[in-house]
Design a protein around this nucleic acid. Structure first.
Length: 195
DNA sequence: CTACTAACCTATTCATATT
DNA sequence: AATATGAATAGGTTAGTAG
């Protein structure tokens, strides 16, 4: 254990968003809503996707996905006794698909090639630059990363030894298989629907 | 230190605009 | 229909902070 582990923020690195602290009132509303509808539509999470994350985390923590008995949870109020199939209404409409213009995509792809894991600062900068909510930028990067790592998972190809220098923390699963796959082969036409 | 949990991640699936 | 890709999901990891 080293002394001097005080926060020595690396300059310019990519940090994560600062931890949100919900007030009691907010938490109350969130929990109440969750108990009614664990799968809220896009309307719930406005531009700030903190709420969406909150629901994701809570579903995971509570081991959702299963069909619990009529009770089991602390929420019970008046137990409906004639319509137990009210779960279908749970899932609401999802957010409308965002259509990125070619220029927006160009910016995103360029950024991705430079750094596939942008921190909150850079994501917000990008978002502002292309005029799209930061949450959409984050999702875009997630999708992009997943789709590129998806191909060829068994192969392990060492990458530049340079980057191995700063091992802040190892990766979990296996070595990052950053094979020499070409990057985005984006032969984009010229469609720029400015939604 | 430990417990809790927001933030973030991957992998997969669902949905839809474009070809 | 087939393809590409944005949105949502389950579920695991990283890290801030209250006790």
């Amino acid at each position: 254990v080293a002394e001097d582990t005080s926060a020595h923020k690396m300059v310019g690195a990519n940090h994560r968003r600062s931890r949100t602290k919900f007030t009691e009132d907010q938490l109350k509303i969130l929990i109440d809503t969750f108990n009614q509808k664990p799968y809220p539509g896009y309307k719930i999470n406005t531009e700030e996707s903190r709420i969406q994350i909150w629901f994701q985390n809570r579903r995971a923590r509570f081991g959702f996905q299963k069909r619990p008995g009529p009770e089991t949870l602390e929420s019970n109020q008046s137990h409906g006794q004639d319509q137990p199939d009210t779960e279908f209404q749970s899932r609401e409409a999802r957010r409308c698909r965002t259509i990125y213009s070619t220029s927006q995509l160009r910016t995103l792809i360029e950024a991705f090639m430079k750094n596939p894991y942008p921190g909150i600062d850079y994501r917000e900068q990008l978002a502002k630059e292309i005029g799209v909510p930061e949450s959409r930028v984050q999702i875009w990067f997630q999708n992009r990363r997943s789709r590129f790592h998806l191909r060829r998972k068994g192969e392990v190809v060492s990458l530049e030894p340079e980057d191995r220098g700063k091992i802040s923390e190892g990766l979990q699963g296996a070595e990052d298989t950053q094979n020499g796959t070409n990057f985005p082969r984006d032969s984009h036409s010229s469609r720029a629907r400015t939604w």
